[in-house]
Design a protein around this nucleic acid. Sequence first.
DNA 1: CGACTATTTGACGCCAGTCAACACCGGTGG
DNA 2: CCACCGGTGTTGACTGGCGTCAAATAGTCG
Lengths: 255, 255
Amino acid sequence: MARTVIRADRMPVKDPGVERALAKLRARDVLSPEEERVFVESIAETREIAAHRQIVRAGTTLTHSILLLDGFACRYKDLADGERQIQELHIAGDYVDLHGFLLKTLDHNVGALSDVRIALVPHDALRAITEQQPHLARLLWFSTLLDAAIQRERILSIGRRNSLARIAHLICETFLRMKVAGLAGPDRYPLPITQTDIADACGLTAVHVNRMLRRLRDDGLMTFRAGEVVIHDWDGLVHLAEFDPTYLHLDRRPR
Amino acid sequence: MARTVIRADRMPVKDPGVERALAKLRARDVLSPEEERVFVESIAETREIAAHRQIVRAGTTLTHSILLLDGFACRYKDLADGERQIQELHIAGDYVDLHGFLLKTLDHNVGALSDVRIALVPHDALRAITEQQPHLARLLWFSTLLDAAIQRERILSIGRRNSLARIAHLICETFLRMKVAGLAGPDRYPLPITQTDIADACGLTAVHVNRMLRRLRDDGLMTFRAGEVVIHDWDGLVHLAEFDPTYLHLDRRPR
DNA sequence: CGACTATTTGACGCCAGTCAACACCGGTGG
DNA sequence: CCACCGGTGTTGACTGGCGTCAAATAGTCG
């Protein structure tokens, strides 16, 4: 998949990528059939983007927001000396820049960690939702609040957890999020990213991540190999990471 | 100010705390008089809370959101060993838990760093705004997106900036935010918090913060003393911290 | 095969943490 | 008036977790 492909046709209702995005919302509140229809019809087109390419560059004026249908992406920012920090890891079903709807420009880049498939949602459609579908609008708002909660937990991780717990925490969080999207097995999930990506997400170096992954493997907690995570000891991992999923707000209630 | 005081009277229109919150929104978009009125009237009551007390505890079910009218507060979380991480520093005019409106419970605590005055806004009033004032609702949504942007920048800071730049960055950011709220002088602003608080915000220890503050002072960049920050060399600070205020989205445009 | 990227491992260095002692300061009470 | 006290700030000596540098190995794609 070397270059971007544009498909101008409207989304079929049963696209599995869109289904994952709906699953994410349905896990937090009840959507009416009407709301689901509006959500699906807000999508203008889909594209495919190859791994390691930028999806959105910081600072450009935006007219669409992007829903990640397949693959892995991230929000990141670089410092002058080339140091990169991944601010959030995105899985299929995540809106990678819904906040661009109101911020108008992003203060960070969005990049594809794997080959990805995305959907473009015009800001006009989002604005119409805020004016005609207040409940659906609240759920979209909620979805940006969920990103913020995930980012807050990352602050705690990087600021106060040691390197081992930091990595374990990222693995735990991603496991639950993949489960919600219907993309995880009972004890495993695909994670086709590099150790350098994990390092950039955790504020560490790739060398140290390698050592800590080895320790997690040697201690029988988990294995990360060939783009797949296998959980050997969930309770052990949760305990090590002090992982408390409350911040993922995985409860269905009126919002 | 030893205990909480409840004032049941409705806010006067010209309360300076509310004015700061409006200034924050006006810096990003134009509000109609009608919208300003609805914003002001959404406030049910005000309270005063003493320094070092909790304002909101993680996990409790919320029926109101809290606007900080005066003083300094923070969002924070603790780990089992007692390590604390401040996830966001709040200044007067900030909504400290507007996200609680849709999350229903907070995944973190909110604490008063100084004596504070707060306003309570019922979630019912916020819901009504989403149903009757879509533009004002978008501005409230925007205000939560701004918090998220600030938190993302904190991730970059803690993950990739060294301790000196990390502290300098926090000082720069807070300076601009205080300016927007009308609370900063040309080269100084009040910051009545401890070095331990700065350490908890930056993912450092109080001892190391002390050393770095000394260095910033010795290098003629800034002074933090007796609850006040004095900027000696703004350009130098900005350069050291690689501070780029883009993420504060300080541009007035239709949202 | 050859070029390239990602992973792995070892040796060594440094930034920030830890531990400890002391200074300072406002408040409190004898 | 001063002794006391807890919270905060300051400084020095030492430690250690993670980074840096370097090199070998493994995996992948044309």
